[in-house]
Design a protein around this nucleic acid. Structure first.
Lengths: 92, 92, 92, 92
DNA sequence: TCTGGAGGATTAGCGC
DNA sequence: GCGCTAATCCTCCAGA
């Protein structure tokens, strides 16, 4: 399994301190996860509003995704695709 | 791909207004996604710190997940597990 | 939780029969997973051989992925991307 | 994208040979991926049959996963879990 | 209910 | 050899 042994208190502290440390960590993660869920809901709201304005959700997501790809990369992808497909005698 | 055509501007506005509306929406989503990524990184940091303190990341994640489950549900799940494990003669 | 009750033997059979049924199912899955792992290893081998022949693994994977996209879909994606990016005054 | 340029044919062969080699490789991968998909579908079918027999899919998957773990490792994991849960006062 | 997409967990490849 | 990063695989959930 190769998991660590139960954490001995780092240094001279007692087990209680170590437990508190763990608890703090866990609660911090839980708080962050809560914030994350809030953001996710906001994103969902944004798409919902867009939908009410007549936009297609799928399309909006496509735009957001497409804007993440740098145009140079896009061109290169296209060229590579064509180059290799030609080289392989693509059936298209 | 089967995505819908671009939406005509809802109502009486011009195409420019519709574009602005779409732009605003997209930028809003992008901003929110950025915030979300920040939170995700924070969560990663939290686990990384825990690891440095000697905790096992897998176990921390288990704790966080377990705390989300109601005790009754947990008990029921445990019982089911035992039933299935016994049925197959698993040693636990 | 909403999980099913432990499976009573279907019909008139004994619990042992039900257990055998479960065991058979599990062993079947395990066998299939073994076969699947074999295939995965074969794929890995194929890429490894390609690498030894001087091909770039990433590139080979790109080709395999690209060939899965129908050219019509590819064209449509590209058109959509350009259309919407123009509409949004893309910085490119 | 930062992928390498197309490989020159290794050794003295012509570009056509290199293309053939690449084609063979790609088609081999595609064939293997097809077989793999078939196996995956078979696995899905197995679980679906189990469900029809009254078994809980989640539990079947748990069984399959559990059987992969050596008893000693399982014990160690259980102990670790208890340690962590006790540290945080989880009721199990 | 069922399918597609997002998220998380695992694993392979790589550098130290 | 181990830890890290990145890609893959699988699960879960929202949406149709």
């Amino acid at each position: 399994m190769a998991t660590q042994p139960a954490p001995a208190a780092a240094g001279h502290n007692s087990a209680v301190d170590a437990d508190d440390r763990l608890r703090l960590l866990v609660e911090r993660v839980e708080r962050l996860e809560g914030e994350k869920k809030g953001i996710q809901d906001d994103i969902k709201d944004a798409y919902a509003e867009g939908k009410l304005s007549g936009y297609d959700v799928k399309m909006m997501k496509f735009i957001v995704a497409a804007r993440k790809i740098k145009p140079d990369d896009w061109r290169e992808m296209q060229m590579l695709r064509e180059t290799y497909c030609n080289a392989l005698g693509l059936p298209w």
